[in-house]
Amino acid sequence: MSALVELVDLSVTYAERGGKRRLKAVDGVSLSLARGGSAALVGESGSGKSTLARALAGLVEPEGGSLRFDGREVASLSPPERFALRRRVQLVFQDPFASLDPRLSVEELLGEPLEIHRVGDARARRARSFALLEAVGLSTQDIGRYPHEFSGGQRQRLAIARALALEPELLILDEPTSALDVSVQAQILNLLASLRERFGLAYLFITHDLSLVHQMCERVAVMYFGRVVEENDTAAFFREPLHPYSKALVALARRAADARALLVSAEAPSPFDLPAGCSFHPRCPRRAELGSRCVGERPALARLGRACAPSVACHLLDSERAR
């Protein structure tokens, strides 16, 4: 079975506003997401995880590399084909207070994507809206209400319903629960889990919340300054993270006693002035073992075995394996 999404050496660059500097927000990322699979991109702010997600959704243009959806190179698609592709990838944002137009009723919010993509007539769209409300656990009586009449959790249900309107194959979820009350977060995660089973959706979560990753995802990719430093099965990742940076992230999330020691400096470098070699080397806890390659050569993401084996970008782990 081919992957639903396949990235090879993908890069996205931003030009600094009013300046001459350029920022490689995504720098040569290769990843794939299985049909119906669930994966997470994790990393600190500025790691490029949101930019990568926006590139997948067609909201920013990659500068280089390949992005394939369902086996087809996205860059080579004609404009109508790209328009059609948008139906298949939908986004859910962090803040349901900001992402829903307050002037539109529920019926308009749910009908709008169908209208834009010319799906069905008014009656069919209304029927579809009812089905969507039911799917996300809202009442069909809510159809005439407006976003401000709903609680945060209900609004996020509404945003999910809207994202599902066009029957996408991939939902990109950017911190979908971090703006919600704690008691409501679990409701939304449970809803997402059941929708995925029901509709065979693939999920890509963008998050800094590792407990969400543990609960919701099969695969996890850790990003550091635009590059993936580890890609792994989630269970294996939490049992034993491989990259020194992953180890630090997991220890910090667990509030482990040794978390402080796992990041030599809490300070991340400036994205405009990244260290040579492995960008992580000035913060690497294995300082004493750092070799000339760590400081001089950027490590490539290398798979440690067959198909589902983890991939890591670390010279130290490379040389350990070679031994």
Partner: peptide
């Protein structure tokens, strides 16, 4: 609240123990 939170350790549960309703 304590039961509903997603956790890092242990076995992943099929579903979280959500609190119904809104604050």
């Amino acid at each position: 609240l304590w039961r509903a939170r997603a956790r890092l350790g242990g076995e992943r549960r099929h579903r979280l123990a959500a609190v119904p309703g809104a604050p």
